[in-house]
Design a protein around this nucleic acid. Structure first.
Length: 641
RNA sequence: GCUAGCGUAGCUCAAUGGCAGAGCAGCUGACUUGUAAUCAGCAGGUUGUGGGUUCAAAUCCCGCCGCUAGCUCCA
C-alpha cells in the first residue's frame, strides 16, 4: 500500500500502481469529470501514471493553471496527426506550447495554403470525434533512435541523439500516430473541445539560419468555445488597433518606397503628437537636472573605431562614405558624442553627476524582413541620455531614472509593467568586460535602487550585455500586450575605450561610471505602441486636433470661427469645419478622425453664446457655455487622461 | 537575409489570357442643412518596376523594389 497526500492535507492509502486517474475517480466530484493530469512531487504526469510509492499528488483539472498548457500541447499532437494523415511522409520537427497557443514544425513536400489549414482543421475535428486515447511508453535511447529511423523521422532522431546515453525516452501514441514527447497529455483527443489554426510561416529547424526551413503551423486551444471566441476577438481588436492602419486613417505618418524602407515621413498630425511628447520630455528632463544636447548625424570612421561600434556593430551600420579624403559613417548611436561633450573639459568630482540628454536621430541597417511599421525602422530618434557619475552616486542616479521612467509611463497611461534586472551569468567571466568589483558594485546599485523604490522585479541571470548590467522594463498596453519600455544600462566599456575620467578629491583621476538610459525608447516605436495602446483615441493632451467646431449652416460659420479663436487663445488646438455639408456628415467625419470634442453650433447656440458638446466618449452631451467648456478641457488636459 | 503569400486610382476593393471597373476621397455645381454619409456632373491608371512568353498580359514565366505572417536579429 502507498500513502498519497492531497493538496488539502488529506492522506489516503491505495494499493501500489494505482493510477492518478483512479485516484481522481475515487475523489469524485469535479475531479471525476474534469481530471486531465496529475502532479506528483511537483512533476506533471498523465492520468494513466501508476503511483509506486508514497507521494504528494494534486489532480490537474481544466481549471488548474497548468491545464491550458497540457491541452495546447495535446492539440499540437492532434494537429500533427492530422497533418500526417493528409500528408503521408511528413517529417516532424518540434511542437511546443507558446504564450497564447502552440505550433508544430513540419517538413512537407509542398508549401501549405490557407485551404490546407481548413482541411487540417477538419481532420482534427474527426480525430477529436474519434476520441483516441493518448498513451505513453518509454524506450531506451538507442531503441528510440532505431524506432525513429524506421519511422523516417530524421529531425526526431537528431533530438534523441542529443539525449544522454542510457537515458530513457518517452513516446506518446494516439492511434496510428507516434511522437517523441515528454508529456503529459490529456487522456484522449475527445477532451480537446475548442481550437483554431491561425497561420503558417517558415521557421528554421532549431532556430538556426543555416538549417533547413520547416513549415510552422500556429494555433491555439481552449477548454470552452466561449474562451476561444474571446481570444479571437482580442486578436481582431489588436488588428483594429494596428498602428499601420490607424497611422494611415488618422494621417499621422507614411513610409514611402521612394524614400526607402524603414524611413518615416511624419505628417502634420503625427508630427504634432510627436512634438507634444518631445516638449513634455524636454521639460521633464530639465526639471530633473538633465542638460539637453545635440549631436550630428555623421562622424568620421575613427570615432566608431574608438567606440568599438565598427568592430561589433558593423552589420547594423550603413556603409561608410568619403568626403574630402576622410571616411565618415552615419551614427547608429549617440553615446560617443555625449562622451566627447563630457571630455570637452576637465571634469571634477564636484561637477558630477552630469546628465546629457538628446533626442538623437540614429540610423541602423535592419534586414528587410524585420521592418514593421513604426515599430522596426531604419532611421529613428532615441530619447537618449547618458549619466556620468562616481561609483558612490550610481545608486541615487538609478533611483532618479526609475522615478522619471515611472512618471513617463504613468503619463502615457501605461499602468502595468514587468522589471528585469539583467546580471552576469555565473561561471563565464571571460564573456564580460570590467572587473569583478565594478560588476558587483553596479549590480548592487541597480538592485538597491529597485528595492528603495519597492518595485517587484526578477533577475535575468546571464541576460546582461557584455559591457554592464541593466534594468529593463517591459510595459503592458491596454490589451495586455508587452512592449519593451525603459532601459537603464551601466557601461564599463566606453569609459575605458574613450578614457573617460574625472579628478577626485584625492587629486587623482578616476574612471567615470557611465549609464545609458532611455525612458521612451525611440520616438517612432513609442508612437507606434502609443497608437495601439490608445487605439487611436489619443487623450486630450496628445490629440492633434482637440476640438472641432461644426456650424450647422453658413449662417453660423462666423460664430463658429469666433468660438474657435477664443479656444485657440487658450492654447487649444481647434478647427472649424465650415464646409458646405450637413451636420451629420461633419459629425461622421469628426468621429472617424477621432476628434475628442465636436462642438455643434447653430442658431440656438449663436443666440445664447453656447455650444452643443459631442464627445468622442459619450456622444451628444447637450449645450454648455464656452467658459464652462474651457474649464473642463483645461482640467482634462492637466489630468492627461 | 530566409520561407510562404501579396502589390490594380489618394484609400478600400473588382476584373484569371481578349476594350481596366466600383464605392469613398478630390474638383465643379445645386441644396442652407440640427447629432455617424444630400444630390448631380467631372476628373482620376504606362495595373510597383525591368525583361520575357503570346496575335493578345493586371492575369503566365524570370530579375529587382516594396508590403504581410513568421524565422533569425533588435530601440
Amino acid at each position: 500500500m502507498i500513502k498519497v497526500v492531497l493538496p488539502d492535507g488529506l492522506e489516503k492509502t491505495y494499493r501500489e500502481r494505482t493510477t492518478v486517474g483512479e485516484v481522481a475517480e475515487d475523489l469524485g466530484g469535479p475531479f471525476k469529470k474534469k481530471a486531465l493530469a496529475g502532479k506528483t512531487n511537483g512533476t506533471l504526469v498523465d492520468l494513466s501514471f501508476p503511483l509506486t510509492r508514497d507521494t504528494s499528488l494534486s489532480v490537474i483539472t481544466e481549471d488548474s493553471p497548468e491545464a491550458l498548457e497540457i491541452l495546447r500541447h495535446s492539440t499540437a499532437h492532434i494537429m500533427a496527426q492530422a497533418v500526417c494523415r493528409l500528408f503521408p511522409g511528413a517529417k516532424l520537427g518540434i511542437g511546443p506550447t507558446i504564450e497564447n497557443g502552440f505550433y508544430y514544425d513540419f517538413h512537407l513536400e509542398r508549401p501549405l495554403t490557407e485551404e490546407d489549414l481548413a482541411n487540417i482543421e477538419a481532420e482534427m475535428r474527426k480525430i477529436i470525434k474519434e476520441d483516441i486515447s493518448f498513451s505513453r511508453k518509454t524506450l531506451s535511447r538507442n531503441e528510440a533512435i532505431k524506432k525513429m529511423e524506421v519511422e523516417r523521422q530524421p529531425y526526431k532522431m537528431e533530438l534523441i541523439s542529443d539525449i544522454a546515453e542510457g537515458e530513457e525516452v518517452s513516446f506518446y501514441t494516439q492511434g496510428e500516430f507516434l511522437d517523441l514527447c515528454r508529456g503529459p497529455h490529456i487522456p484522449s483527443s475527445g477532451r480537446a473541445p475548442a481550437f483554431k489554426l491561425l497561420s503558417v510561416a517558415g521557421a528554421y529547424w532549431r532556430g538556426k539560419e543555416t538549417n533547413p526551413m520547416l513549415q510552422r503551423i500556429y494555433g491555439t486551444a481552449f477548454f470552452r468555445q466561449q474562451e476561444l471566441d474571446k481570444y479571437l476577438k482580442l486578436l481582431e481588436e489588436a488588428k483594429r488597433r494596428d498602428h499601420r492602419h490607424l497611422g494611415k486613417e488618422l494621417d499621422l505618418y507614411s513610409i514611402k518606397d521612394d524614400v526607402g524602407a524603414g524611413l518615416v515621413l511624419w505628417h502634420p498630425k503625427g508630427a504634432r503628437i510627436r512634438n507634444i511628447i518631445e516638449r513634455f520630455w524636454c521639460d521633464e528632463h530639465y526639471k530633473r537636472g538633465y542638460q539637453v544636447v545635440y549631436s550630428p548625424h555623421i562622424a568620421k570612421s575613427g570615432l566608431w573605431h574608438t567606440s568599438g561600434h565598427w568592430g561589433f556593430y558593423r552589420e547594423s551600420m550603413f556603409s561608410p562614405f568619403e568626403v574630402e579624403t576622410a571616411e565618415y559613417l552615419v551614427k547608429p548611436m549617440n553615446c560617443p558624442f555625449h562622451i566627447l561633450i563630457f571630455k570637452s573639459e576637465m571634469r571634477s568630482y564636484r561637477d558630477l553627476p552630469l546628465r546629457f540628454a538628446e533626442l538623437g536621430t540614429v540610423y541602423r541597417y535592419e534586414r528587410s524582413g524585420v521592418l514593421h511599421g513604426l515599430l522596426r525602422v531604419r532611421g529613428f530618434t532615441q530619447d537618449d541620455a547618458h549619466i556620468f557619475c562616481t561609483p558612490e552616486q550610481l545608486e541615487e542616479e538609478i533611483v532618479g531614472v526609475i522615478d522619471l521612467a515611472k512618471y513617463m509611463l504613468t503619463s502615457f497611461g501605461f499602468k502595468e509593467y514587468e522589471i528585469e534586472l539583467a546580471v552576469r551569468g555565473r561561471g563565464e567571466k571571460e564573456k564580460y568586460i570590467g572587473t569583478d568589483e565594478t560588476w558587483t558594485m553596479a549590480e548592487q546599485a541597480l538592485r538597491r535602487a529597485l528595492e528603495i523604490k519597492d518595485l517587484p522585479y526578477y533577475v535575468g541571470e546571464g541576460e546582461a550585455k557584455f559591457y554592464g548590467p541593466s534594468i529593463d522594463i517591459k510595459v503592458k498596453d491596454a490589451l495586455g500586450r508587452g512592449w519593451q519600455g525603459p532601459t537603464i544600462q551601466v557601461d564599463f566599456n566606453l569609459p575605458e575605450r574613450f578614457d573617460v575620467h574625472y579628478r577626485g578629491p584625492d587629486g587623482k583621476d578616476h574612471r567615470v561610471v557611465m549609464v545609458h538610459r532611455t525612458v521612451l525608447g525611440a520616438m517612432e516605436r513609442f508612437l507606434g505602441t502609443l497608437i495601439e495602446h490608445y487605439g487611436g483615441d489619443f487623450p486630450l493632451w496628445l490629440a492633434p486636433v482637440q476640438v472641432r467646431l461644426l456650424p450647422v449652416s453658413e449662417a453660423t460659420n462666423d460664430y463658429a470661427h469666433t468660438v474657435k479663436k477664443k479656444l485657440e487663445g487658450h492654447g487649444l488646438r481647434a478647427e472649424c469645419d465650415d464646409t458646405n455639408q450637413r451636420v451629420g456628415y461633419k459629425i461622421r467625419q469628426g468621429t472617424l478622425e477621432k476628434v475628442p470634442y465636436l462642438l455643434i453650433v447653430g442658431g440656438k447656440e449663436m443666440e445664447n453664446g453656447l455650444v452643443s458638446v459631442r464627445t468622442r466618449k459619450n456622444g451628444d452631451e447637450g449645450q454648455c457655455t464656452v467658459d464652462k467648456l474651457l474649464e473642463r478641457l483645461e482640467r482634462e488636459i492637466n489630468e492627461k487622461v
